[in-house]
Nucleic acid binder design. Structure first.
Lengths: 218, 218, 218, 218
DNA sequence: GATGAATGAGATTTCATTCAT
DNA sequence: GATGAATGAAATCTCATTCAT
C-alpha cells in the first residue's frame, strides 16, 4: 500500500483535482445541452478521461449532476455577506455592490450557467431543486431583502413588498445569465454588453422610468 | 380519390383537430421535462393516442418540437399591436397594458412554458431558436421599444438606452413564467401572486426605488 | 343484396380486374425492392387504391406475394410445348425458338422480374419456392431437355449430360433478365441489346468458341 | 492517451478481429434472407455479441451492408491477374483456369453469396451497386475479355463480340452460385455437382453443341 | 487507478393490419 | 366495396453502466 505522504506531489494533486475537472466538464455540457441530452461520453471527452473514470468518482449520472450543483456556489454567499456589511450604512451602494458582485462572482463565471441548468431541470430533480432553493436562492435573496429593508427603514427607499421585490430585482440579472447561455450562444445576436446592461438596470432601479421634477439625491 | 368535402364530418373534424391535441400534450411535457427527457410514449398517452399516431402527423420528435414552438404564439403579437395603438398617447398606460397583456395572453396560458422551453433547448435547436427569436422575441420587444421611445420623446420617461432597456423590462415578466414552470412546480414555495408581483413591478418601473421629494405626476 | 347480373358491366369488369391490377403493382415493386422492403402503402399507391383495399382481396402481404408468383406464368408453358412440337424435327431451330420465345414471352414482359424475385426470396418462402420450382422451372427445363435429347439422339448435338446442360443453357437467359432488373436499373451501364446478346449466345451454343476446320453450316 | 502498443494484446486482437466477425455473420444472413428481412438481433446473435456491439463498429445497418460488400472481394482480382499471366499463351487453358478459379476462390467460399445479395439489393443501394460494378464486376469481366480477345487474335477462338460474350460467359458461373443460395438452399433438389457442372460448361464453351467431326446435318 | 469494449434496457421509428365510417 | 386514421408489435438505434484487462 502506498503511503499517502510518499506519493509524488504532482500525482496526489492530480488525484485530488480530478473530481473538479470532471464536474467542470459536466457543468459546461449540462448547461449547454441539458442533463438528458448530455452524454457521458462527451463529459469524459471534455475532461480528457475515459468514460469509465467517471464512475470512479461518481456513482451515476445523477450523482454527477448533484455534485455539479453542490460545488462552488456556497462560498460566494460569504463574500456577499462581507460586502453587505461593508455598505451597511448606504443601501444604494450596497445594492450596486450586490448587482456588480453577483455578476462578477457568479454570472460571469463558469457557474453563470447554473441558473439556466437548474431552471431547466428543476422538475426532473425536485430534491436537487429544493437543495438549490434552500441553500443558494433563498440565502441570496435574503441578503438582497436585507439591503432593501434597511433602505426602506432608513427612508431612502420607498416602502415596497420586500419579499416580492427581491424576485423582481433578481430577474434582470438572472435574465442576463440565461440569455448568454441560450440565444446568445446559438443565434447571431449583437452581444449584450453586460456592464452597460447592469448600469442601465441600476439606474432604472434607483430612478424608475419617470422624469422627476426634483432629483432626490442632489 | 375522395373529395375532402365528402368525407364524414366527424372524422374530418377529428383529423383536423389532432395535430393541436398532440402539440398541446407535447408542449406540456416538453416544458415539464425538457425535450430529451420527454418520451414519445408519454406524449401519446397524454394525448390519448398510440405512439404510432404521432408519426401520422409529425415526421420525427424534432418535427413535433418545431410544431410546438410554431403554434399559437404569433396571433398574440397582433393583439399587442392593437393595444399599443389604443394607448398611443399614454406611455404609462401602454406600459401597464403591455405587462398585463403579456401575462394574461401568454404567461398565464399553456404557452407560458415556451420561454422556459426555448431557453433550455436553444442550443440544441439553433434553427428553431433563430425562428423564435426572429418571429416572436424581436417583434415583441419592438413593440415594447416603441412604447419606451414614445414616452421618452414625449418627455414622460427619462432618456434611456431603449434597446437595452427592453431586455431589462422583459426580464421580470419572463422570470415570473420561468419560476412558475421550474421551482414553483416542484418545490414547496409560497405561491407568488402574479397580480401582486406585476403590480409591484409596475410601480418599480414607474417610480424606481428612491423616495422622491416631489411626486412627478400629481 | 345486389344481383350479380344486374350490376353495371363496367363496374363488374372493374371488380374482376382489381386483383390483377393489384398483383401487377405488387410485382413491379417486389421485383424492384424485394418483398420485405416493399411497403403496402406503395403497392396501394401504385395500383391507385387505398391500403385497406388490398385486404379486401388478399389476406396478408404473404398472400399477395403468393398471388404474384402464381399468376400468369403457367400459360406460357403451353405455348412453349406448342413451339417445341412445331420444330420437332429440327433441334437447332427448336433451340433458337426456345431462346427467342423465352425472352419475348417472359423475359421481356413484366414477368421478367420474377426470376430475380424468386431467387431473392426463395429462402424466405420455401413453399412458394417449391411451387415455383415444380410448376415453372422444372417443366420449363423439361422442355429444353427434350430439345437437347432429341438433338443428341438425332446425331446433331454432341452427347451431353442433358440434366446439367439445361441449367447451363438457361443461365445466360436468366442472367439477361436478372441484369436488367438489378444493375441495369440503377447504374449507368450501356444498355445490353437483348437481341444481339441472344444471337451471340445462340451462336456460342451452336459452335462453341473454337475455330473448327470445317464449318458445320457453310 | 494510452499507446496502442501498450494495450493488452488479447483485447487488441479481439478488437481488430471483431469487424470481420460481424461482417461474416451479416454476410451469411443478408445472403440468406436479404437486407431488409435480416434483423440486427440475428446478426448479433450469429456473431455471438450483443446488439449494441454492432454499433461500436458500424454506424447503421446500411453501413454494415456496405462493409459486407467492400470486404474481401478485391484481393481475388490480383490472383486472377496472376493466373491470366501464367496462361498468357494458351487461351483455352486460361479460360479453364478462370472458370475454375472463380469458383474455387469466390463462388465456393462464403463470398459466393455476394452476387445474389448484390443483385437483390442493387436497386435499394445504387451507390453500393455502382461501387461493386466498378470495382468488382467490370475488372473481373475485363480479365475475361482479355482472355477472349487474345484467343481471337491468336486464331484459336472464333471472332465474337468480346464485350457481350463476357456477360454470356459469366452467366453459368453466376447461376451456379445463385442457385446454390436460393432454390438449392430451400428446396429438395438433387445437389448440382459444381465440378461436373463446370466441366460440362467448359466443354460447351469450347465445342458448342454441334457435332463437328462430320457435317452435323447431312 | 484507469481504460474502453461490451452490454442490454429503453428510446425512437416503421409498417402490416384493423375497423369505424 | 372502399377508405385511411389508428394501432401496436417489432424493428433500428442510443447510451448509462459494467468489468476484464
Amino acid at each position: 500500500m502506498t503511503n499517502e505522504a510518499q506519493r509524488p506531489a504532482a500525482r496526489r494533486r492530480r488525484k485530488e483535482a480530478r473530481p473538479q475537472e470532471l464536474t467542470a466538464a459536466a457543468l459546461s455540457l449540462f448547461v449547454e445541452k441539458g442533463f438528458a441530452a448530455t452524454r457521458l461520453d462527451e463529459v469524459a471527452a471534455r475532461a480528457g478521461v475515459s468514460k469509465g473514470t467517471l464512475y470512479l468518482y461518481f456513482d451515476s449520472k445523477e450523482a454527477l449532476f448533484l455534485a455539479v450543483i453542490r460545488e462552488g456556489i456556497l462560498p460566494v454567499l460569504d463574500e456577499g455577506r462581507r460586502m453587505l456589511a461593508e455598505h451597511a450604512d448606504d443601501p444604494v451602494a450596497a445594492l450596486r455592490a450586490y448587482i456588480r458582485g453577483w455578476w462578477s462572482m457568479l454570472g460571469d463565471t463558469p457557474y453563470g450557467g447554473v441558473p439556466k441548468l437548474m431552471m431547466s431541470e428543476a422538475q426532473n430533480f425536485p430534491e436537487v431543486a429544493n437543495f438549490y432553493l434552500t441553500e443558494v436562492i433563498q440565502p441570496g435573496r435574503a441578503l438582497l431583502q436585507e439591503i432593501i429593508e434597511r433602505g426602506v427603514a432608513g427612508g431612502v427607499f420607498r416602502p415596497v413588498d420586500s419579499k416580492l421585490i427581491t424576485h423582481i430585482l433578481m430577474a434582470p440579472m438572472l435574465h442576463l445569465a440565461l440569455w448568454r447561455h441560450s440565444f446568445a450562444a446559438c443565434c447571431q445576436v449583437p452581444d449584450m454588453q453586460a456592464d452597460d446592461y447592469l448600469d442601465e438596470y441600476f439606474r432604472l432601479l434607483v430612478h424608475g422610468l419617470l422624469v422627476h421634477d426634483k432629483e432626490p439625491n442632489p
